[in-house]
Design a protein around this nucleic acid. Structure first.
Length: 291
DNA sequence: GATACGTGGGT
DNA sequence: TACCCAAGTAT
């Protein structure tokens, strides 16, 4: 096992160009790293920052969040999107208190067992919070490796075992260096090797990049599925939950009926919100965030 | 493996 | 404007 030719250029680039993000500071706790990773799932950094600061000010340790009702987590989630992540984070806090003495576990499998923590997040927390050696394969890393090593514009739609194997091969042998490498490649993908208009002129790997050296051939695979949103159950659920977030207490059914015209879709969406544990139907006919 | 799951900014 | 994309996970 040895360093790849990519390691030094990427680490040097990172040292000079990394953003000063709060969850990367030396005083960021493993809990802070976990909170950031859950919030960053499909949500851009700039929108996470305010919610992250407020969240950790209010709940600086897992036990603080675990002591609150889940609805408080959903309310504090604000407009980050995918509010089930708030529920997952709350449930994770309780599991960390119940099973791990209030300390975020360092072990990959124990992290992976927490609700809402998948392969990426478990590797990220183990790596960034505890300097363990794990391949961290997010959308940024996948795109960088696709271009630099594989020579294609975009990675496959679904993660492949070949990608995992490649990421593991490129992982520096020393655990702390591996953790630094992972965050550095992610940052490179976020700032330079972007999806739309990569800034190859600023890339420390431009001389090594298979895709660039091949003339940046366009992606030739099947069209990638677009996400429709307007008029969907997702939008309807978002409207309904926003009513509850903005209310200090339970709301009448009429308040929910007001925000979506299609009755059938509205009722269906409310039912799934209840199923998901994001909304609590009270005995008196009103609705509330989960207690 | 495909689909559902929020929200908003960039082009 | 319409579409793409953003530190994914669960089913």
């Amino acid at each position: 096992m040895h360093e790849s030719r990519y390691t030094e250029p990427v680490l040097s680039w990172y040292a000079a160009n990394a953003r000063d993000l709060p969850w990367r500071r030396p005083d960021a706790s493993p809990w802070a790293v976990l909170v950031s990773e859950i919030m960053l799932q499909q949500t851009p950094v700039v929108r996470v920052l305010p919610s992250y600061e407020a969240w950790l000010a209010r709940w600086p340790v897992p036990a603080a969040l675990a002591a609150e009702p889940p609805g408080e987590a959903v309310r504090a989630w604000g407009r980050l999107g995918y509010p089930r992540r708030a529920l997952n984070l709350h449930a994770s806090a309780r599991a960390i208190v119940d099973r791990h003495g209030g300390v975020v576990p360092a072990d990959y499998d124990e992290l992976r067992a927490l609700p809402g923590v998948g392969a990426y997040t478990a590797a990220a927390v183990a790596s960034f919070a505890y300097r363990r050696r794990h391949a961290v394969l997010d959308t940024n890393v996948r795109r960088v490796l696709a271009r630099v090593v594989t020579g294609v514009q975009y990675p496959p739609k679904a993660q492949t075992t070949a990608e995992v194997r490649l990421a593991e091969e490129l992982l520096p042998p020393d655990p702390p260096v591996a953790a630094l490498w992972s965050v550095a490649v992610m940052e490179l993908g976020a700032l330079v090797c972007t999806a739309r208009a990569p800034r190859c002129a600023d890339c420390p790997l431009s001389g090594d990049c298979t895709w660039r050296l091949a003339g940046k051939p366009a992606y030739d695979g099947p069209a990638r599925k677009g996400q429709t949103y307007a008029g969907t159950d997702r939008q309807c659920r978002g409207r309904l939950l926003a009513v509850l977030r903005h209310s200090s207490g339970p709301v009448e059914k009429a308040a929910l009926d007001d925000v979506w015209d299609d009755t059938l879709q509205r009722e269906r969406s409310l039912a799934t919100l209840i199923e998901d544990g994001l909304v609590d139907p009270l005995d008196d006919g009103r609705y509330a965030l989960p207690g």
